[in-house]
Simulated scan of single mutants.
Amino acid sequence: MVAYTTAPGDVETGPEKRTVVLIEKKSSTGWMWKLSVTLLVAALCFGGVLLFAWYWNGKPQTLIQSGQTEALTKTDTAEKTDPHSTLRRISSKAKAAIHLEGSYDEDEGSKDQVEWKSGQGQAFAQGGFRLVDNKIVIPQTGLYFVYSQASFRVSCSDGEEEGAGGHHTPLSHRISRSSESMGSDVSLMSAVRSACQNTAQDDSYSDGRGWYNTIYLGAVFQLNRGDRLWTETNQLSELETEEGKTFFGVFAL
């Protein structure tokens, strides 16, 4: 900014001859404006750095949580589609439970009953349950869910007629109870089915080597301490004993 200032004239020269001096005055608002712009730019840069750091620090945690949720969802879906896993999960949360896997081998002398084992596959025992003489011993008086499954593969051809379906083969599976308080043995649950039929059934099928059929039993009972439970199954030579096909268990409610 330039201001015009008139210098005092010489008295002797008169008013006609005066010297005009130009004096430049710098405005104080110019440097303040530049300083404000500089501070604003610095503030914006600092804010951008903070936002960038916050975004990248939070993103890995979000990805981890998302991955964990997806993994849990897949696990839950797989378990829901497997009834055997569902029974195992429910019984494992019970105060007392036992789950046994069945086996049968004529060469080992098991000719009249399924041999139940607690130390193989998914079998386990907890809460005082014991397996004595192939029977489950109830640890305490109370309500219990008792269940068992027997799977069969039956050859339906009698050798005299061509093709399958020449005769019917009855299959049976039973759970019995021995109780000192009742004084006698009683049958808790039982089922009888025929695997060989001329038409297909909903719960059995054939693959050219025989008919497959499964008998499942399950219900709630009031049992006493010391009661013993066991199974009776016919057609043992046709029994399927692969893991998860034939089992026996009890868990407290």
Rank of each mutant, 00 (worst) to 15 (best):
E242S: 13
F52E: 00
D202H: 12
R209V: 07
L100S: 10
Y212I: 07
F124C: 02
M32T: 12
F152Y: 08
S206E: 12
G208R: 09
W230A: 00
L39D: 04
F129N: 01
R225F: 12
G58H: 04
S27C: 10
N57S: 10
S187C: 05
V20N: 09
T246D: 03
G210L: 02
L35R: 13
V154E: 04
A53Y: 00
S176A: 10
K117S: 13
S155I: 08
I175Q: 03
Q140E: 11
W211R: 03
N224L: 13
K117I: 11
T6K: 04
I138G: 00
Q140N: 10
P139H: 08
Q140A: 11
M189K: 01
R88F: 05
Q68K: 15
D207A: 11
L239S: 02
E180T: 09
E12R: 13
P170G: 05
Q68Y: 14
H99D: 08
I215G: 02
Y104V: 11
R89K: 15
Y205R: 15
Y104C: 05
T6G: 10
K135F: 03
G102K: 00
S179Y: 02
G48H: 01
G208I: 06
S237L: 10
D76M: 15
G109N: 12
T6M: 09
L35G: 11
D76C: 14
S190R: 00
T214F: 03
Q201M: 13
G102F: 09
L223R: 02
S194A: 10
T233Y: 00
L44P: 03
T81R: 15
L100V: 11
Q140S: 11
G128S: 04
G48Q: 03
D207H: 04
D112G: 06
Q201G: 12
F124T: 04
W33T: 15
V137W: 03
D10W: 05
Y104E: 07
G128A: 04
A219C: 07
L72Y: 14
S157Q: 06
Q235L: 07
R228L: 03
S178A: 09
E24A: 07
L39S: 04
F248L: 04
A7I: 09
L50V: 02
I175G: 00
K59Y: 10
E101P: 07
V154K: 03
K74P: 12
S187Q: 11
D203V: 14
F124Q: 08
R177K: 05
L171N: 05
S157R: 00
V37F: 13
N224P: 05
Q65Y: 13
S184P: 01
G249K: 06
Y205M: 07
S92E: 13
P8C: 12
G67Y: 07
L236S: 02
E240C: 12
A219M: 11
S206A: 09
K59V: 01
E70H: 15
K26H: 09
V11C: 08
S204F: 03
F129Y: 11
G183F: 00
E161W: 06
L100T: 08
Q197D: 09
G218W: 01
Q201F: 05
A78N: 14
T199N: 13
K245C: 06
I136T: 03
G102A: 12
R89M: 14
E240K: 15
G30F: 15
V11Y: 15
F251G: 01
S187V: 06
Q122V: 08
Y212W: 12
W31G: 13
T141G: 03
K135N: 08
Q235D: 05
Y104M: 07
P60S: 03
